[in-house]
Write a protein that binds this DNA or RNA. Structure first.
Length: 878
DNA sequence: GCGGATCAC
DNA sequence: TATGGTGATCCGC
């Protein structure tokens, strides 16, 4: 679904915040016509009345406070800068500036084409009744664009329709017709391709072209090739080089009306038909034809002429030596105009001189505000403050700033990179019932799966996005070990993420106004090449060699992984409970553990406790005697009381050495005990940094059960051959994140075996080489897959889905808890600089993006010094 | 890898 | 009555 919003036609619109910024925003120069429109005071007043007191506004204020805090932090840091530091920074910044200057490339001619009020213009074109009226495209909730009539009333893109209506009661709101816009866009793109087959479309109404090559060729073109017939109502077949849509007189009169408030001088410079006598090779207007010259400006006039002939719509354009400048230029004489910065340094610097930084793509509202706090509003000031900026902002950021202030930008158009994520999200009126939230989530997953299928994409990371009725946004992500793509697989992950959030707020419901699901971590080319194979493949006869580390489950558990249905029936009650839980936030956690004291002895165990409490609770009420396995030392604790077991675990957690083999006993219902044990296995995984779990894994024995066989497989990866080397690696990872572990259970119908492996990232990548492919591997009829983590039978024969479930079970468990709670001693932080909520950072746009601009990040804490500017340069502008 | 923030369109 | 959807990047964890 293409829902790109049409770009604003006035850069002033970039000021779209409320409160202070709202005043700026009203200072638009397109409402000077006091007669018909509204003055900015009135506009502001109306907007504020409609906004104030709303939840939306409340959140805007909150965000604004955060930004202010960031600014405050930045100013404090600025105050601590010594003159010595500043001098040093100056030298460094100057050196970098010099290198940038040396790299300046003026040899390309970049054009930025921008359709004027695109969606609105299309609607007006197709419905003459709208021609003279203020219209906007969108809904009562949100407008994507407005025509110039409406703009006089302060109606503009990204404004809710109901507010626009208050500003302009006669406003006509037209629902968007994306199919139509796409069709028109295609027509435009056909024209653009004639000048640069590799042009870069940024949206339906905007594109960059590199016409350098075209210009070269064009120099030798005969006039005939640059001649276009002007279409009138009667003439047919009058498009010489290309076939253009013919226009009636009536139609041709539409476009100018769109822009009747354009300054007259704009009309002249902007009109491609206008003869400019100063230009040597300006268009010559013949009787019914027009010949364009060979200069860049002529080319762009030709492009705009052809666009208008073909679509009856006008475009604005910018011509410059790089994308950043071209973009700014296209805004300069908008609408229906163009502007060129000649390809010489002086012209560039003159243009840049007083350019407000906010005009530059990549400098948004927040960045502007932060820089303004430093007294920086124009590019000149940006350059003057380069030393200071290098001290206050991240390297990426100040490098970007320096690029801007020197008028530098990307000189070539990057080809479309591979997509990195795909998502679906939806806003709705409040939904608070968990069941509805889950089912909504499921729908979103289905939609996403469909979209993914269209592009044949599969990914490993599922992210859900939640926005509550107060407009507070949250995202939660989970990465699994092999790629997923079906609705079921995605939902299996997403629903657990959602459940965690629902549980976290229990007993209060989540009051949602938006939900989204995103899939990312698509395999890169490398991954694809190696084609990952699921263990299904590994276990095919004659291919049993590879797998990760093996199974750490105990014999007594093995039958829980894959067991006859008959056996699973006994669990139906728990299954039911479990699924009930998923659809109502009822039970969740909140069950106090039996033995508080013993559980609370170690801080680490708090997390374990949380996770295990419900199992323990069930345990307590059960009546079967079972064996526990300590999640820390991995040793079987025999039949002991829960209390004794807890004590043992505490001791293990506290003590440096793994405490031994004290036998403990406990009573439990069979299944709940199993749940507990599985969790235990899980726990131990998360603690692997402290444990030589590999050793344990290797010692695990697995025996066949009935027709099902658990096979331990050992990786032949060089890395894991040497256990010592492996543990060294782990210790080196101290301070970073835990390596991700996952269970993988693969079932091979042919030999009736099932492999359970617990693996770390390295091995995982090995294994992943082949997955992604076939999910389905039918399990024989009388067997069921049982998750080793939650110990519940999975009603699926889809192996991928099953693996996803196991991954999810693992992910949502203690590993994340440990991270969050910072229990891992090696990760021991770092007293939070986090007081402000978001530590004041700007960010920067990377280079692989097609965007010409970069964003910035303000680093309130220490920042790394740029040591290799040359490298950075490469990174930025390739 | 995760989550919040910022930006563009 | 009512303030969007998609994709990307950056940075500190």
């Amino acid at each position: 679904m293409d829902s790109t919003k049409e770009k604003s036609d006035c850069t002033e619109e970039k000021n779209d915040s409320y409160k202070d910024d709202i005043l700026l925003r009203m200072g638009l120069n397109d409402n000077k016509a006091g007669m018909e429109g509204l003055d900015k005071e009135k506009i502001n007043k109306i907007i504020m009345e409609a906004t104030k007191g709303s939840r939306f506004y409340g959140n805007e204020l909150k965000k604004e406070k955060q930004v202010n805090q960031r600014i405050e932090n930045m100013m404090q840091q600025k105050a601590q800068i010594t003159s010595q530091q500043l001098r040093k920074a100056q030298i460094q910044a100057d050196r970098f500036a010099m290198e940038l200057e040396q790299s300046r490339d003026l040899n390309n001619t970049i054009v930025h084409i921008d359709m004027d009020a695109f969606y609105a213009a299309v609607e007006m074109r197709d419905n003459p009744e709208l021609k003279e009226k203020p219209i906007a495209v969108g809904s009562m909730s949100m407008l994507t664009t407005s025509n110039y009539h409406a703009r006089r009333f302060g109606v503009r893109a990204a404004m809710p329709g109901f507010i626009a209506k208050r500003l302009c009661p006669q406003l006509i709101i037209v629902p968007p017709n994306f199919d139509k816009y796409r069709a028109v866009s295609r027509e435009v793109k056909e024209i653009l391709a004639d000048y640069d087959p590799n042009f870069m479309a940024m949206s339906l109404d905007e594109a960059y072209l590199n016409i350098t090559k075209h210009l070269e060729e064009r120099q030798n073109w005969p006039e005939d090739k640059r001649k276009y017939f002007i279409k009138t109502g009667n003439s047919l077949e009058n498009d010489k080089p290309r076939k253009e849509v013919k226009l009636s007189e009536c139609e041709r009169s539409i476009s100018p009306l769109l822009f009747e408030d354009s300054p007259p001088d704009l009309q002249s410079t902007g009109n491609p038909l206008q003869v400019n006598s100063e230009e040597p090779n300006n268009p010559q207007i013949l009787e019914n034809a027009i010949v364009f010259g060979t200069s860049a400006e002529e080319v762009v006039k030709e492009i705009r002429f052809r666009i208008e002939q073909k679509t009856t719509l006008t475009a604005s354009a910018g011509i410059a030596p790089n994308t950043m400048l071209a973009k700014v230029c296209s805004d300069k004489n908008k609408p229906n105009g163009q502007y060129q910065i000649p390809p010489n340094r002086q012209a560039v610097m003159d243009f840049i001189k007083d350019l407000p930084i906010r005009k530059v793509s990549g400098i948004g509202k927040v960045t502007e505000k932060m820089l303004k706090a430093l007294g920086i509003m124009t590019c000149t000031e940006l350059y003057e403050q380069r030393a200071l900026l290098s001290l206050l902002f991240s390297e990426t950021s100040w490098h970007y700033f320096l690029h801007i202030s020197l008028g530098l930008g990307s000189t070539h158009l990057e080809r479309d990179g591979e997509r990195k994520s795909m998502s679906v999200e939806r806003t709705f009126s409040e939904i608070s019932k968990a069941e509805e939230q889950y089912s909504l989530c499921q729908e979103l997953c289905s939609e996403l799966a469909q979209d993914l299928q269209k592009e044949g994409l599969k990914g490993r990371t599922v992210t859900i996005k939640l926005k509550n009725v107060n407009f507070e946004v949250k995202t939660r992500a989970s990465t699994v070990s092999s790629v997923v793509s079906t609705a079921e697989e995605i939902f299996a992950i997403a629903k657990e993420l959602l459940r965690t959030e629902i549980d976290a707020d229990f007993p209060h419901p989540l009051r949602l106004r938006l939900m989204g699901v995103r899939l990312s971590s698509f395999p890169n080319e490398e991954d694809k090449k190696h084609q990952q194979r699921s263990i299904i493949g590994f276990l095919q006869p004659g291919n049993q060699a590879l797998s990760a580390t093996g199974c750490i489950l105990e014999k007594t558990d093995k039958d829980q992984f894959l067991k006859p249905l008959e056996m699973s029936h006994k669990k139906s009650f728990f299954d039911k409970k479990r699924s009930e839980r998923k659809w109502s936030h009822q039970d969740t956690f909140k069950f106090e553990t039996v033995d508080k004291q013993s559980l609370q002895t170690s801080q680490s165990f708090q997390v374990l406790k949380k996770k295990m409490s419900k199992n323990l609770e069930t345990l307590e009420n059960s009546d079967n005697c079972q064996i526990f396995t300590c999640p820390v030392c991995f040793k079987e604790q025999g039949s002991v009381s829960l209390e004794a077991f807890n004590k043992h675990v505490d001791a293990c957690l506290d003590g440096p050495s793994v405490s031994g083999n004290s036998k403990m006993s406990s009573c439990s219902h069979a299944s709940s005990t199993e749940v507990n044990k599985i969790e235990t296995v899980h726990d131990s995984v998360s603690l692997c940094e402290k444990q030589d779990y590999e050793t344990h894994q290797r010692n695990i024995e697995v025996t066949p059960v009935e027709s099902v066989e658990l096979v331990e497989t050992i990786s032949n990866s060089p890395k894991t051959e040497d256990v010592d080397a492996e543990s060294n690696k782990h210790s080196k990872e101290e301070g970073s994140n835990l390596p991700s572990k996952s269970f993988n259970i693969e079932y091979c119908a042919q030999n009736s075996s099932c492999t359970v492996s617990l693996e770390n990232e390295d091995v995982g990548s090995l294994r992943r080489q082949e997955s992604s492919q076939p999910y389905l591997c039918e399990v024989t009829s009388d067997q069921a897959l049982v998750c080793p983590v939650c110990n519940l039978e999975q009603k699926t024969s889809n192996l991928t889905l099953f693996n996803v479930h196991v991954d999810v079970c693992l992910n949502k468990g203690i590993i994340q808890e440990l991270r969050k709670d910072k229990i891992n001693p090696v990760n021991q932080p770092k007293e939070s600089t986090k007081s402000t909520g978001n530590s004041g950072k700007l960010q920067k746009i990377g280079t692989k993006t097609k965007r010409p601009g970069l964003m910035t990040k303000y680093s309130a804490s220490k920042k790394t010094k740029p040591n290799n500017p040359r490298h950075t340069l490469d990174v930025f502008f390739k």
